[in-house]
């Protein structure tokens, strides 16, 4: 038998207010801030949490806040990854990241996703990868009115992305980084990129279902888990999601964990996909329930 429960208008209105307040009070990705800001933020805390933050400030000098809307891991990962590629990546890493982006839609379709439901997200993702790496957007798209592949229409006003040589000049890096930041702050496109990272995560779970089944609780299959916990926007991530996304893109991720447990006064660092080759290491700060981007000293 089915049953349902429902709440009154005021509860819903309250939830909407909280959501709107979060949206209004924080950028999707902030400018870099010194990590000492974190110490000020928690100056009333006398517990191990503050000790761990002190430990963080000794190793990382700045961070960027990422909006706490349930997508923060994916958003932080996406921006930090492309920034790492721009600043410390090699030509080979840029090419690898680009090639796997271009190949990814066909892989997802092979796993059962409907092409027209994922391709707008794919386009946004490839666009942002092309912007960072300087490789051109792939030449073919699919025309649904005729059912045949067609060349992508080039926007006459936009200059084609600058090709190599790699490494980039400081000026070119700065230009691309400011364009990237603009995209990651522009919500419709930024959400599409974040959503595609969710799809890539889900795709990796499904291709390696046998391996991941052991990590999934509540008797769910890997597909059911993806439908509930990965493919839904604003669903928060757990460590297993980080394992999957870092492996999917072969990108090393370091998460610096801070909490108030007093077993240690040092922040715990966990490295995912330690030997990843597609980019330099992406560092993230974890405070309970939230991820931000960290920059090493």
């Amino acid at each position: 038998m089915a049953s349902s429960a429902y709440s009154d208008f005021d509860v819903i209105a309250q939830e909407e207010r909280v959501r709107d307040e979060i949206a209004a009070s924080s950028e999707l990705v902030s400018d870099p801030l010194p990590t000492s800001v974190l110490l000020d933020e928690y100056k009333e805390n006398k517990d191990a949490f503050r000790d761990k933050l002190k430990d963080v400030t000794s190793k990382y000098d700045s961070f960027r806040r990422v909006r706490g809307d349930g997508n923060c891991f994916y958003r932080a990962f996406g921006f930090a990854l492309l920034q790492q590629i721009l600043h410390r990546g090699t030509e080979e890493q840029a090419r690898k990241l680009y090639q796997q982006a271009v190949a990814s839609k066909a892989l997802l379709v092979a796993q059962g996703y409907t092409e027209y439901t994922i391709e707008d997200f794919y386009d946004s993702y490839v666009e942002v990868i092309a912007l960072a790496t300087g490789f051109p957007k792939p030449p073919a798209a699919y025309d649904y009115s005729t059912g045949i592949p067609v060349p992508v229409q080039q926007d006459a006003n936009s200059e084609p992305p600058k090709q190599l040589p790699w490494p980039l000049t400081a000026q070119e890096r700065a230009l691309r980084e400011s364009n990237l930041l603009a995209i990651f702050r522009d919500d419709p496109v930024a959400s599409a990129v974040v959503y595609y990272l969710r799809l890539l995560t889900a795709g990796h779970f499904k291709t390696n279902a046998e391996f991941f089944q052991g990590f999934i609780e509540d008797g769910l299959t890997v597909s059911e888990f993806c439908a509930r916990e990965v493919e839904v926007m604003a669903r928060e991530c757990e460590q297993v999601h980080i394992v999957a996304l870092s492996a999917a893109l072969d990108v090393p991720v370091r998460v610096v964990y801070t909490d108030s447990s007093d077993s240690t006064s040092q922040a715990t660092e966990i490295n995912f996909q330690e030997e990843g080759t597609a980019a330099p290491t992406v560092s993230l700060l974890y405070r309970p329930g939230h991820y931000d981007i960290l920059y090493a000293r």
Binding site: M1, A2, S3, S4, A5, Y6, F9
Partner: peptide, 24 residues
């Protein structure tokens, strides 16, 4: 559904405004 009468009496115009609990 067993709570049909209560729900229909109180339901707001859009089901998206309802806070659903999925039991089964």
């Amino acid at each position: 559904p067993p709570d049909n009468d209560t729900y229909v009496r109180r339901a707001i115009a859009s089901p998206k405004q309802t806070s659903w609990a999925f039991h089964d």
